[in-house]
Design a protein around this nucleic acid. Structure first.
Length: 446
RNA sequence: CGGAGUGUAGCUCAGCAUGGUAGAGCACUGCCUUCGGGAGGCAGGGGCCGCAGGUUCAAAUCCUGCCACUCCGACCA
């Protein structure tokens, strides 16, 4: 993409309304624009990030055998009356009446809709276990939206639902989700800690939230520092094996880790030596639930089991805040100059800065690098504006692309360009093809 | 939902106490100089001063109502 043709409305000054760093940087870098309280437009740069996050979420869901689909944003109130939540959910649910006077709602979640789909299509335990999910916009009419996309009213969420014949199978689904979520967050460069959670309006008796440590987080968290040492890394977990998933669950839930909602100071002190007791703020980026037959009973979702009995299906639901993750990643990865994107979610892999736009040599060298980068499978943002060096560097730093290739007359005389790593600031002089190859290796591997 | 604020150019803000031709910086347009970390000069363009009433010869400014947005708290898969 050529910057001269890209819509990148960056701001030099910080908008007055933005309180936290991710909100400020998303506005300044032209990723988002507020449409109304808690509702945002995603501008081209932000949309790229959102799509890359969403794609990782999909890949990790599909990897463990879950079925992608898409449910509507608007739902009929009837299903919610059936489950009893139409009255229970409260003011957070945006209720709408259509032209025929029918009660509708903008979905805050999809347990009812998915249960309705499954109960009419699945009659036998032979069709289970089954996990369906989608990534769709949700609306929750928060009393007080704030912090940009971190607590918006309209937000993009991946929500998934598992259906199992009994509790044992559903617990496997629960543990499998924990494995899958841990890997999802790790791919985004985040250290997300599972913490025992309250179940809230979703209900159920078994739930963990995933929290990313950040000063500006809305939750207070208490944990054993040992949990920070855990990492899936390249470990190959067989997610079809309930033993393998349970082992991961055990490993990640053994160290004490709770939010202020479930924190038990006495237990904390008894279980964790003082030098490992940590407390911090954190951002919730996902949650998993097992809630048994909470929805299948009122909605009469049953299957015939091996013994020929009609039994209520056991269910769980699982969510990842896709749009919130864009903010959370920035909270976890930025410096005084701007965003520092992890390669996996960066809007472009690299930026190309032509320091002397209009000069035949730097223009042709920059164009050639831009073309080569594309051929190497890299998304590059080529700053071909007729600007001075200062604004060009400042823009690249602000939008936080992992790599920058600087093409200037000084180095070019020796046939070299500069390759700069956004995270470390390290700069090397290399031949153009070598610079591209290094970026390609870093982003795509050998 | 309680409490506190703010709405003036695309952005950040001044002007409002004491009513009298709507301002600055950045951004934008043109020309010139500059050219490896947010340059400088000159000349321009851009506003229903959130909306609606009221007071007044005269309202961005005073009064009333409404709307929007923000902050603190409560709330929050």
């Amino acid at each position: 993409m050529r910057m001269s043709r890209y819509f990148l409305p960056i701001l030099k000054e910080t908008p007055a309304d933005a309180q936290i760093v991710s909100h400020r940087l998303m506005l300044r870098s032209g990723m988002i624009r507020q449409a109304s309280a808690g509702i945002y437009s995603w501008l081209p740069l932000g949309y790229r990030v959102l799509q890359r996050i969403e794609r990782i979420v999909h890949e990790e869901q599909i990897r463990v055998g879950h079925n992608p689909m898409l449910m509507p944003t608007l739902q009929s109130a009837d299903l919610w009356r059936e489950s009893g939540r139409y009255d229970d959910y409260g003011e957070e649910m945006l209720r709408i009446t259509d032209r025929h006077g029918r009660d509708m709602l903008y979905g805050p979640t999809n347990e009812e809709l998915i249960t309705d789909i499954v109960r009419s299509s699945v009659q036998s335990y032979r069709d289970l276990p089954l996990t369906l999910y989608h990534v769709q916009w949700k609306f929750r009419d928060e009393v007080r939206p704030r912090f940009g996309v971190m607590r918006g009213r309209e937000f993009l969420m991946k929500d998934g639902y598992n259906f199992d014949v009994d509790r044992e199978s559903a617990i496997h689904a629960y543990n499998r989700h924990m494995v899958s979520y841990l890997r999802t967050y790790e791919r985004m460069g985040l250290k997300a800690i599972p913490m025992r959670a309250e179940t809230g309006p979703i209900g159920g008796d078994h739930s963990h939230e995933f929290l990313v440590l950040a000063e500006t987080g809305e939750s207070a968290v208490f944990f054993d520092s040992r949990i920070l040492d855990l990492s899936l890394g390249g470990r190959d977990v067989d997610t079809d094996s309930s033993e393998d998933c349970a082992a991961v669950f055990e490993a990640w839930t053994a160290p004490y880790a709770r939010t202020d909602e479930t924190h038990d100071p006495a237990k904390f002190e008894a279980a964790v030596p003082e030098d490992r007791r940590m407390n911090s703020r954190a951002i919730e980026v996902g949650q998993i639930f097992y809630f048994g037959t909470k929805y299948s009973e009122p909605m009469d979702a049953r299957v015939v089991n091996e013994d020929g009995d009609r039994v209520f299906v056991h269910m769980g639901s699982h969510g990842i805040g896709v749009s919130r993750l864009a903010g959370a990643i920035i909270e976890a990865s930025h410096d005084e100059r701007g965003i520092v994107w992890p390669e996996s979610v960066a809007p472009f892999h690299l930026g190309i800065v032509n320091l002397k736009q209009g000069d035949g040599d730097t223009d042709s060298a920059s164009e050639r690098i831009f073309a080569r980068a594309g051929a190497a499978g890299l998304d590059a943002l080529y700053d071909d504006r007729n600007e001075r060096a200062g604004p060009k560097f400042a823009t690249m730093d602000l939008i936080g692309l992992p790599w920058r290739i600087t093409v200037g007359p000084r180095c070019l005389r020796a046939g070299m360009v500069e390759l700069t790593c956004r995270r470390t600031g390290e700069t090397d002089e290399l031949e153009p093809d070598a610079a591209i190859e290094r970026v390609r290796l870093s982003c795509h591997g050998p």
